[in-house]
Design a binder for these strands. Sequence first.
RNA 1: CGGGGUGUAGCGCAGCGGGAGCGCACCUGCUUUGGGAGCAGGGGGUCAGAGGUUCAAAUCCUCUCACCCCGACCA
Length: 569
Amino acid sequence: MKLSKLFFRTLKEVPGDAEAISHILLLRAGYIRRLGSGIYTYLPLAKKVLLKIENIVREEMININSQELLLPALQPKEIWEISGRWKKYGPELMRFKDRHDKEYALGPTHEEVITDLINREVSSYKQLPISVFQIQTKFRDEIRPRFGLMRSREFIMKDAYSFHRNEEDLDVTYWDMFHAYEKILNRMGLNFKSVEADSGAIGGSVSHEFMVLTPYGEDKILYCSSCSYAANLEKASSSYEPFDTRDFAEMDIVSTPNAKTVDEVSKFVGVDQKYILKSLMYKIEGEPTMIILAGDDELNEVKLKNAFGGKEISMMTPDEIKQKLDLSVGSIGPVKVNNIKLICDKRVCVENVSFYAGANKDGYHFKNVYFKRDFYSDNIFDLRVSKAGEFCPHCGAKLVESTGSEAGHVFKLGTKYSEPMKAYFKDENGKEKPFEMGCYGIGISRLLSIVVEQHHDEFGIIWPATLCPYQVIVIPANVKDENQLNTAEMIFHELRDRGISVLFDDRDDRAGVKFKDADLLGIPIKIIIGGHFSKSGLIEIKIRRDGSSNLVPPDEASVYVSLKLRQLI
RNA sequence: CGGGGUGUAGCGCAGCGGGAGCGCACCUGCUUUGGGAGCAGGGGGUCAGAGGUUCAAAUCCUCUCACCCCGACCA
């Protein structure tokens, strides 16, 4: 491809609304352009990279016997009503009416469509398992699109679905997918962690997210500095330094005027925050419930919700607490409350530890409050937000926190969709059973961004050799020098004939401009025919990633480059 | 949806009652040619839109629209 003919343009200045480095570089290098909020055009360079991403994904899917198909993006309302998600999915679902006033959604995901299809086509256990995938544009009416391609309203995704006769069979495919995802991300040269995740709106039991470590990620993860443990912050657990124990002392009431928060009480009585019990009032399915945590901990609402099977939970307002329970925030505590349900984080459920706790009387706290002796609950769960610096639940090494961006997500759905959609097959005994399902997504267009987040420097993008839009760029420093131009053209043709994808910078620009553009675009190898060539007849081959360069005779260029390319992969 | 902000040339911005400007990009010419060149000349605008105040509005007021940031939300 001659650069003079390539539909692209690089920008020196950064469009004001770009913040993430990947967004800035993809705009500056002429890969993407914004059409509206969260809507982007992929220019030819980006399309080439997308195809490479897709093909890596495609290969690994086919490797584990998943078959490619293409489902409709346009989906009638009815199918979403059967699964119950027309109501449940919320405003993120792009909806509209056609001219007959019939309602539709633009698919954000395809569980309904595929379950319906498989139900129609598959009726016997003999046809199972079956695994299918598609690469398609999806739509989500995101509350707030962000960071360019990282969170957009129209995006490209690979989603796969599998159907099984039982859980054991699902388990096999689930882990096949899991390992395929690892391979895919490794082939793209990404540094990532697979984490245990909350399954959120899609539902199901087991779920892992593939988090790529990036500064502009929207999720926080904790991972072990030693073993492979990693988890989404909302799911992470940890072990921690034990409390100091003390023999029982008599409980006492102390005046704590104007000390309401844990911090204030801690300062007033001169005791570390962790020895002050934090008592929070929540409504769980309407029932007022007191939640007890150590003072320096924060409640993890996701853990709370999961502990109660996904029931509706909400924090009570100070007014509600006053009206319904005649307690005021700042002096609430678990001691001597009989009519309120009590839930404890397991960290505070240890004997021989002396706590302070609200006395349920304005301006007073109890001291020497002991678990079991002074407060007790059967409802003991891990409810706290784990923190960096605490210890891995598997191996005990320190946990590290990082932000990450979700590149992929695998779920075991079980019968969450097949049951309500009455998607059944006949088992060996002729009995009707719902399909056991799994679903597996990878954000194709998001990966374009994620890869740039991890592969760039101050000069621009540095594509891994597996994803570059072109492998080599041939640069005659001065196109008016016929000797340079002819040699460059010869090398260009030779490389092309070897099946190497190559750009030829035939533009009548100064060398500096061409170098800057080549670096910005992120082409792995530059071949420069310029000053060195005119002096010594040697051409320069420069590697984008480390800036190293070598001088070789022109007729050895193509061999040298093919060799280098193999090393770069 | 709440809070904050911005809409002026393709991009980045200044101007904030009286001439629509600067830098980059673009076009022409000459020079230059190894890390985003120099000089000279040139084209490009419904100052987001509608209404209002004023002798006079990009500038002040009202409404609408679009976009961005923070938060709530989130396969």
